[in-house]
């Protein structure tokens, strides 16, 4: 069961990822979600939103800054913030692998926090997948451009139709046991060396 009354603060320099997590938490019924992108704003935000749970990306070099802030806030009678649960090794492990860390206000029950961290972990993983797919799509586009260029060269120099030029590239790649884009790249390079 989610705990909609909990106040959650997300600190992530990556704005897109931050909004993906925020959306997930809101969908799960959490109304009190705040997002900041710079740890330096944390003092004011903590005063305004009094978060029970703070989620931060592990890549953030300012984790040390944040932890120091917690240690100071203890002195001004704010509850101490801690890593989820010392005993729950598997949850911590999963979180670190996904690249996310959570701090929890002292005294908060583990059952109330776990769904939030699980959500953050799954959204972090989803974001990594998305980034990877985007990267793959981008390189696929690059590859198609090179293949198109190679096709153009074959069509021009050997008077082939487009399907025939494509078929020739494909056959050559298969015969040489290489990727089509590699064959196309060699052709484009050779053509540029040989001049117009």
């Amino acid at each position: 069961m989610p705990s909609p009354d909990l106040s959650i603060l997300i600190i992530d320099e990556n704005r897109i990822r931050a909004s993906i997590i925020e959306e997930g938490l809101r969908e799960a019924g959490h109304a009190r979600v705040a997002v900041i992108h710079d740890v330096n704003e944390v003092g004011r935000t903590i005063a305004e939103t009094a978060p029970d749970v703070i989620v931060i990306d592990l890549e953030n070099p300012k984790r040390d800054t944040l932890e120091h802030f917690f240690s100071l806030s203890r002195a001004i009678q704010r509850p101490i913030a801690m890593f989820v649960d010392r005993s729950d090794g598997a949850t911590i492990e999963k979180a670190v692998e996904a690249g996310v860390s959570a701090y929890v206000v002292d005294g908060l029950k583990k059952e109330r926090v776990k769904p939030i961290l699980d959500m953050a972990v799954s959204r972090f993983n989803a974001f990594s997948r998305l980034t990877r797919e985007l990267e793959e799509a981008r390189s696929a586009l690059e590859e198609r451009k090179i293949i198109d260029q190679a096709k153009g060269i074959l069509m021009k120099t050997r008077g082939l139709s487009e399907p025939d030029a494509y078929a020739l590239l494909r056959k050559t790649a298969m015969n040489q046991n290489r990727r089509m884009v590699d064959i196309a790249q060699s052709l484009v390079t050779a053509a540029s060396l040989l001049g117009p």
Partner: peptide
């Protein structure tokens, strides 16, 4: 690594 906190946690976790 990017922070001492990560060094500390990832060593504690055995990464």
């Amino acid at each position: 690594e990017s922070s001492w906190a990560n060094i500390r946690d990832r060593t504690a976790l055995g990464h």
